[in-house]
Design a protein around this nucleic acid. Structure first.
Lengths: 339, 339
DNA sequence: CTGAAAGCGCTTACAG
DNA sequence: CTGAAAGCGCTTACAG
């Protein structure tokens, strides 16, 4: 087909197949109420194939008032955690015949406005919010009766979320450190206002209690989920009179900074202090030293979120925990304590 | 506005403002040929505001045969290089009133198909391809007369691309190492088939020649742009009879693995070997040791690409180099050689 | 079992 | 200077 792209429409197919457009439409959409002679169906399918027909998304959307597209808002593409979530969501969207618009929520103001615009313009059928968003826009979404879902966090009083089993992840991490013989274990938690941070902290405290260990408040510091945050928190904890022999870092991105800060402060990892972090990703195995982590099902989280969004009404409650696989991946950053 | 979302259309606005729909449409789109009494225009604008009118994207697309959306294909969201490009492209798209659909080209087969589908369905007005793609689909795009643009690479015989000044980046890196006193300088290049890798290699060779230094082929290794690749290449170079005293790594993601491999092989950085890498990002400053880099204008690349795509016909040649800012960011991984 | 018709919400030549 | 009308490409009750 050289020259023009030659937009082929439903009518073109109908002409070639010698049927009405409506029949073609029904064949294309697999209408279960359609009874055509097998031979007719074949003619239609051949014509579609031969002409290379593809339904025009705009026309279909206008008619059905559905966009066949979902939106996924991500706070920061630079955080590798989101790369996995995106991958899962894309795969699920593809399977369901939907497009996925991934966008960074980025600067609060424009992010907020853009998400409302997308909805008002009918460009998306639903919205996935990964990571932190202000509760403000959620209020609007709720009144707008639009399908939306929080991914990897909950929010006060909302009943639309999918999360991971963060408590268990922290528990496995603590168990690993305890089994190595650590008793003075610190926690570099996420931002105090982050739901994931609270759950990981809760899991940390519970596991410490189960192991009969005390949580020393001076060994708990809060950091945002960035390398810089992880570094600052580590410096804080290392400067206490009697630093911990091991820390659980709430996030792998900040663990990068944690390792750096330990090194800069003259603490050998794992010789002087062991480090384990939540999330596993390619990066972790190549840090210095290679980072022991708790693998989390981020890809599964993304795909599950998309599926739930697609299959539920805006009024349904969605409160799901994706639990598998969560497991400790032992590398070089954890070892028994010096004494 | 409790209860229903109450889709408000052009007609609703027209009714309230007591004008025809066509007038509202022209006001909304800022038609320069429209002469309305200022007072009429005010009535229209007030009605739009009061009703919270937003044009329906599907209807507009159907009518104008434009999607008001661009697509950006990314090989791998986990590579932080792309996070910056995405950010730039998103900003530019927002400024121009377009949406941006970011998707991973991922698995070749489905990625290829998805991009053609998007076009056939009229879901996008143009496509940006960041990173490597097989030349195959480009052939199809060319015949389809659809605007597309390669970002950060060129391809044989194609005249639609925006790239960075990779030669210069390599040159600055080599100059920095030379100024520290290094003479045995190696290069951990990107994949042999990658255009960026070739340009960075060319820049490396040219700068070495300018400095009167020889390129020892045993000190040049190829790696894909991942931590694992950077580690393998480093091991290769370090196992030569007389390893280099410094290496230029073509990519920051692989430099993570490079530092790890050096450490694992018992080479201190920068004591035994200096490391400098192309691209700067938050991660770099928090590696062990903090990585010296050449900062590249990745955000600018993304926004420029989007603008070029929006403003040029499918037949235009687009061959642009985004040159600023490129500069060496000195951290802890480079130092004078031991002797 | 298949076709004719209406209409989704816009834009844009064209007429008045 | 403003309005009436056609039509973009589909889907879907409805009629035959």
């Amino acid at each position: 087909m050289p020259g023009k792209p030659a937009k082929v429409t439903l009518s073109d197919v109908a002409t070639v197949a010698k049927v009405d457009r409506s029949v073609v439409s029904r064949v294309v959409n697999g209408d279960p109420n359609l009874n055509v002679r097998p031979e007719t169906r074949r003619r239609v399918e051949e014509a579609i194939e031969r002409l290379g027909y593809r339904p025009n998304a705009a026309a279909r959307s206008l008619r059905t008032a559905r966009a066949y597209m979902f939106g996924l808002f991500i706070p920061d593409f630079a955080n590798p955690v989101y790369a996995e979530i995106i991958k899962g969501a894309e795969q699920a969207a593809g399977r369901l015949g939907y497009g996925l618009m991934t966008a960074s929520s980025g600067e609060v103001r424009s992010g907020h406005q853009r998400c409302l615009d997308l909805l008002a313009q009918n460009r998306v059928d639903g919205l996935l919010f990964a990571g932190e968003e202000s509760g403000h826009e959620l209020e609007r979404l709720r009144t707008a009766k639009v399908p939306w879902l929080l991914v990897n966090r909950r929010v006060n009083g909302s009943h639309r979320y999918v999360v991971l089993d963060d408590e268990r992840a922290s528990g496995l991490a603590v168990d690993h450190l305890v089994s190595l013989g650590h008793r003075r274990i610190g926690h570099l938690a996420g931002p105090a206002e982050a739901d994931t941070a609270r759950r990981r902290y809760a899991g940390f405290v519970a596991a410490m209690r189960r192991a009969g260990l005390e949580v020393d408040r001076r060994h708990v510091a809060h950091a945002d989920y960035t390398p810089a945050g992880g570094a600052a928190a580590m410096r804080e904890v290392l400067s206490t009179p009697q630093p911990p022999t091991a820390v659980l870092v709430a996030n792998t991105a900040s663990a990068v900074g944690t390792l750096h800060a330990a090194h800069a402060a003259g603490f050998a990892v794992p010789g002087d202090i062991s480090v384990i972090a939540v999330h596993d990703m390619a990066l972790a195995g190549h840090l210095v030293p290679a980072l022991t982590t708790v693998r989390m099902p981020l890809t599964e989280l993304g795909s599950r979120a998309l599926e739930l969004l697609a299959h539920h009404d805006p009024d349904d409650e969605i409160t799901e925990v994706v639990t598998e696989p969560v497991e400790v991946v032992i590398r070089d950053s954890t070892a028994p304590p010096a004494r």
